[in-house]
């Protein structure tokens, strides 16, 4: 059962096609989406009060990387609890995952069937919280 938690799903990925496709699919599913092509801008939005129920985070991005974004997020007590799912095409992320903290990792390429249950689970958890 898909139900919007009343909070947006944040998508941070510099790849225009992938970000647009994810945003379109997730909004078709029924979620409000907050897509960002730049981790710095996404972090600024969080600091300004955007409260997503989940962040889908790419790692390899120009400017601020996903790792840097996650580090900054964890340093800010107001933002640290927002769940993150790392969506990456990078290999060897598993070894670095300690620096990412408690995140799920979805490896590209993935099918919608892989990602959607994770997003739904987080949306449901967020709905129960609110």
């Amino acid at each position: 059962m898909i139900a919007s938690p009343g909070l947006p799903l944040m998508i941070v990925d510099d790849d225009n096609d992938l970000r647009d496709t994810l945003a379109e699919l997730m909004s078709a599913v029924g979620y409000e989406v907050a897509p960002f092509d730049d981790a710095g801008k996404a972090l600024a939005a969080l600091e300004e009060g955007v409260t997503p129920f989940l962040i889908l985070l790419d790692l390899m991005m120009p400017g601020m990387s996903g790792w840097e974004f996650r580090a900054a997020q964890l340093e800010n007590p107001k933002l640290a609890a927002i769940p993150v799912v790392v969506v990456t095409a990078a290999t060897g992320v598993s070894e670095d995952r300690r620096t990412l903290g408690d995140v799920a990792i979805v490896h590209k390429p993935f099918a919608l069937d892989t990602l959607l249950p994770i997003v739904v689970q987080h949306a449901n958890a967020a709905r129960l919280r609110h």
């Binding site: 790849d15 096609d17 290999t91 490896h107 590209k108 390429p109 993935f110 919608l112």
Partner: peptide, 12 residues
């Protein structure tokens, strides 16, 4: 890495 990203979009 470069191959996986468009393949992801294709798949989705």
């Amino acid at each position: 890495h470069e191959l996986r990203t468009p393949v992801t979009t294709l798949t989705l």
